[in-house]
Amino acid sequence: MSQAETLPTPAPRPGVLWQLGLFRSEFITVMRRWRTLALLAVLTGVPVLIGIAVKIDTNGGGGRAGGGGSGGDGGGPAFIAQITNNGLFLVFTGLAATLPFFLPMAIGVIAGDSIAGEANSGTLRYLLVAPAGRTRLLLAKYASVLAFCVVATLVVAASGLIVGAILFPLGDVTLLSGTTISFTEGLWRALLIAATVALSLTGIAALGLFISTLTNSGIAAMATTVGLLITVQIVDQIPQLHAIQPYLFPHYWLSFADLLRDPVYWDELRRNFGLQGLYVAVFGSAAWARFTTRDITA
């Protein structure tokens, strides 16, 4: 047979492009799913609901803000009272309201589905014989889950900012420590907070990815991840279990409020970042160890 037809193997181009092509395809694929759009729609809706609830409540003449958002299960900061004075606080309230469940649940769904969903539909085997490379595919998957963390957080923040600007006055921001800063600086702090919230989600993203490598059922992986989140959040509320609570990934989540102090109180923020880093390292390695040695039978 003619050897002229057989092309010489092109050497795989290393470097950034090697990673980026698959990551882009991965992220676009995730964002084109209806499920993803539905999750983002729910996340958009939370600040809208809180804003409207607060607006109605103030128009009704005082009383407690009910229903809309309890600012993070009682343990959270008291942003909600500030919303009527400054719409920017709807961003903080929105993030505080979604961080305990809505945001991590969305991340859990996306991360849990990432490998298991592809295995379920059989597309995983075709990606691997393409050949995507197992480590490369896992990295692309995790990167796209992280990108979704950023997108989801920004969606909540943007929705909060827009609704806040429409329903309430904007202006100088009075911090939790009593200092007043300009609105522009307030916006910077909001961006910093959004970044912190997105970083807070990296732990559960790694956990979800690991769970996703364990099974061939996307639904099972999503349910397990979200179930674990709920369990951990409950354990984090039981006083008798305080000994293990500092090791639970959501334990320092609401520390982002410390960014609204002057000077910023870094202690818990640092602990939060350290904890997330630990979860990423542990579950990231576990996911890698599992995925690179596993038989792909689906």
Partner: peptide
């Protein structure tokens, strides 16, 4: 292998674009 596997929510062309971008070479 064992029948085709596709992303149902993507068009035929986008399915192929995705598989091709999985190949680093």
């Amino acid at each position: 292998i064992e029948g085709p596997a596709l992303y149902g929510f993507l068009s035929g062309r986008d399915n192929l674009l995705r598989y091709d971008s999985a190949d680093p070479t």
